[in-house]
Simulated scan of single mutants.
Amino acid sequence: MPIKAGGRNLLNIAARNEAITVTWIKSYLDLGPNRPTWASVADALIALHTPESERGVEESVKVNIFLQSWKTKRKELPKDLQNMLKISAKHGVRLEGLAFSREILRQMPVWYHIESNPIRNLNRGRQSSCLKENHRVYTVGDTEKLARKIGTPRHNNRKDCRCTSCAELRSSAKCKAPNRCMNRAKQLLDTLPQKWNPCSILPEDFETQEVAAPRRREGTFDPRITTKGTLSDAFRIFTEGRKCNTTADMSWLSETQNEAITAYTDGSCENNGEEDATAGAGIFVSENNPLNRAIRIPKELVQSNQTGEIIS
């Protein structure tokens, strides 16, 4: 801190070390082809030191602790990894975004998916074992492909179904019960919240190039909210509060893609600066317009005029 600000003009070593650790976290969460070797070693060590409650989780499905719900024994990890996980938790490193592209959603591991409803029995059992061993299903994308085979023409919900998909799976995957495996794949997808399920209607379905292009001009608002790229692009730092696993209804984009809209926004706060402050935001386009909004600022956020204005 500078002397003028009351400090001694000395480097804050603790803050510097945390900043260095954050750069290591960024490298660790680079899940692409250029991922450093040490990050894969870290994955193996984190997966190795699991508590007794996680003994039922097969080693083959442990991918990354930031992507899955299984736990590790931090105290048994090397000091550097302990510190990395500690700083990650302190600064809110997690998957976060208003919406994600299907490309990103399909890269997520389906087993012990960190955002799935906690029905862990679906991760085990005969059908789940067949999915892993015979169908080689490990990601949400793999699961989606198998589940969509339920829609094969002439498929029926029977063990002896003779549709083309069931016949192909019996031959190529050596699967004895293709229909059951398809249904298990669908069950796994059904545990995912709307925001994380590639089979859901997503904001990117309405964020076409025709809609987005006119809004690239300086001074106009880009309404696209979908994070695109790779799984690594879905991580954020300095997050806080509860996660929201539903996405905004963006269907209005398709209704207004060729129409210029003038919107008036503002935020306000009753008892601003007091403990019982209550903030809100508003959007007005025209009388009885479906785009008009009255927004109550969630209690998790600071209740102030500024918050209301930012939200609006």
Score class of each variant (00 low, 15 high):
261 I>M: 07
279 A>E: 03
277 A>S: 13
265 T>I: 09
264 Y>P: 06
303 Q>M: 01
267 G>V: 01
279 A>H: 03
296 R>D: 02
296 R>V: 10
288 N>L: 06
255 E>A: 09
262 T>F: 06
285 V>K: 01
274 E>C: 11
273 G>T: 13
289 N>P: 00
256 T>V: 00
288 N>Q: 09
289 N>E: 00
273 G>W: 10
276 D>R: 11
274 E>T: 14
299 K>Y: 12
278 T>H: 11
260 A>M: 13
263 A>Q: 05
275 E>N: 13
284 F>Y: 13
263 A>M: 12
263 A>S: 14
280 G>Q: 01
255 E>R: 12
286 S>R: 15
290 P>Q: 02
280 G>W: 02
268 S>N: 11
292 N>M: 03
256 T>M: 00
286 S>H: 07
261 I>R: 14
283 I>H: 00
301 L>F: 15
255 E>S: 08
266 D>K: 08
277 A>F: 05
290 P>W: 01
260 A>C: 09
302 V>I: 14
271 N>A: 08
266 D>I: 07
271 N>S: 10
266 D>H: 07
299 K>G: 10
295 I>V: 13
267 G>I: 04
268 S>A: 15
296 R>Y: 05
264 Y>I: 09
270 E>P: 10
276 D>V: 13
263 A>K: 06
257 Q>C: 12
297 I>Q: 05
297 I>W: 01
266 D>R: 08
292 N>V: 02
273 G>F: 11
299 K>L: 11
267 G>F: 03
281 A>L: 06
303 Q>P: 05
